[in-house]
Nucleic acid binder design. Structure first.
Lengths: 331, 331
DNA sequence: ACTGTTATTGCAACCGATCTCAGCAACCGA
DNA sequence: TCGGTTGCTGAGATCGGTTGCAATAACAGT
């Protein structure tokens, strides 16, 4: 196909380049007859505007970086999925950026996103977000963060209510008859992980039962270590709350290796609501985060901020998702 | 920061725009003194070239679309992970494109990739790749496919040896003492899935045992249905080969719900070697595909083709990864 | 009929590079 | 000393659009 530029469309439609441009990007500025004619001609030629040329001139592209620590983690994968959808509904393209938790890489992505005129970016942090770094890149490109940010700053965020989630888990377990409930901490040093832990500590205390933190590590092996710790206890808790589904999986897996059954011997509840959990053995009871909503909202927030400069902090409600990894405590 | 264009660097270095350009993209064409001076000045200013402008002019960008059916599937997630790495080692940015198996979307991405001058794209198919569609977009943009393609065409591919993988699984199971081995088919109608199934059928026959296909469906519930089928049999096989890890998970989960234990009651082996499998309950024995290699190779193949026009078909060797979901048959 | 909007469209500069062509200096052998 | 490379750099067109400004057309009101 002969290179299709705006000029060939213009010629074909018998108008000037600029008119074609307007027909596409500022329809109201062109007489409707003309516009329709142009559009028809363009359609016939199979013409589309070059996003690159547009970006160069307008100094704002449709590339939006999605910065995640690890796309292999199903939570981020699910996030990515809903975000791509939300993105191309609005004509954006998602750039997949994985940092492996390396702040240097993150900064690298920031400068890259600047270079390609990204209108904004989405950051799903693995560690507490470096507000300073964000400020340093206050080049007009906005960022929305899927986590709480230190000091509720100028950066929009979307999170779920950690405390509420933990409360849901605790209530569920209490209702089942558990009184001794352990906790295994989450993957990373995010504020979210911190919040969940704090909530567990507080709410446990309030309900009168002593908190039992099986592991407070922040790496992928927290689950395994938590299970080990559990196995060493003379009087282990009858239920375990895992800070997220992945560690719940690890806990159950590690427990299983030692012959401890879930939920017969101990109940385990996760936090995330991953689709994967439904196919785990046993299917995982968990606190569901509305991940799909989070993706859409993140993008909406970013757009909103780009338009009216508003920065919002949305906090979503989690909900209890009962599957099969919890039951009454063993008698 | 004042907009940093090539001209400001040129001015600052006291040379012409074009010289700066050469200093960056064709170093040998510039006197080394001049070049170093320019580079130093640029460095000082914190200047980087605009990928957008470059792409527009050179008609070839650094955006490379990764087209997957579902990033939520850990196989694709792992692929995406290694590809992002391989990609930004070479200065590319990965565009995440998820199709949900919709051919229309795939085509959409093809035209988009054309529009932004992608030098090539990577397709991890959910269904048999539509060679016709590929040809239709023979606009000089190359594609490499992570699957076999009908008729070993002009498109480079990277796959693993399905037959060898199935053989490994079968051998492992035979060595353990199993003689009756069932099979649950894979997620999608790819050639790869087909090849695995065919290999199972053939190799089973060769070894004298009758093949038992528990489910040949191609959706996410194949595992569940396979398990149901298994439960209904009066004389079920003592081991099951799952076409991929995800269906293995589903099989084990479904079996578990009915009180069937793995590997005590039945052995299950997967195919993929997902990291997730290590944290499954029980840890999954599986045939490992060298996913990381696949990602790198895919990109290398694409680059190679772009340079010398060669189209290769790489087939990698799978390997047996013994964890805990297989054991000798129940006596 | 005349002047003052208002709606449309054309013109041309510009976004930030690349690349062909041409100019110029230094160098080489005869 | 002179024509013929060779090496390096500057000019300027170009990639595919956008946009402020000017020009023209159309329409009101008086």
């Amino acid at each position: 196909m002969p290179d299709l530029s705006i000029d060939v469309v213009a010629k074909a439609a018998g108008v000037h380049r600029s008119t074609v441009s307007r027909a596409f990007s500022r329809p109201e500025a062109v007489k409707s007859e003309t516009r329709e004619h142009i559009l028809r001609v363009a359609e016939g030629l199979g013409y589309t505007m070059s996003p690159l040329a547009q970006a160069l001139r307008k100094k704002t592209s449709t590339f939006i970086p999605l910065i995640v620590p690890d796309i292999t983690n199903p939570f981020f994968a699910e996030l990515a999925k809903t975000m791509t959808q939300a993105a191309d509904e609005r004509g954006y393209q998602l750039l997949l950026c994985v940092t492996n938790g390396d702040p240097a890489k993150t900064e690298g992505y920031f400068i890259a996103m600047q270079a390609m005129y990204a209108p904004f970016g989405i950051v799903a942090p693995s560690t507490k977000v470096d507000t300073a770094a964000l400020k340093r890149f206050d080049f007009g490109h906005k960022v929305v963060v899927i986590d709480r940010v230190e000091g509720d700053d100028a950066v929009p965020t979307v999170t779920v209510d950690s405390r509420r989630g933990i409360m849901l888990a605790l209530d569920h377990l209490h209702a089942l008859g558990h009184t001794s409930i352990g906790y295994v901490s989450g993957i990373a040093g995010t504020h979210t992980a911190q919040d969940r832990m704090d909530a567990y500590l507080e709410l446990s205390a309030e309900s009168g039962s002593a908190p039992v933190v099986l592991d407070s590590g922040s790496d992928l092996d927290a689950g395994t270590r938590g299970a080990e710790h559990f196995l060493e206890m003379e009087k282990p808790p009858t239920a375990i709350i895992a800070a997220n589904d992945m560690v719940a999986f690890a806990v159950i897996s590690a427990l299983g290796k030692s012959g401890v059954r879930v939920p017969e011997d101990v109940s385990v509840i996760g936090f995330d609501g991953l689709a994967l959990g439904a196919r785990f053995n046993p299917p995982l009871t968990t606190i569901r985060q509305p991940i799909a909503d989070m993706g859409h909202i993140a993008i909406e927030l970013a757009e909103k901020q780009n338009i009216d400069g508003s920065v919002d902090h949305i906090v979503l409600e989690p909900e209890l998702l009962v599957r099969a990894s919890t039951s009454g405590p063993r008698k």
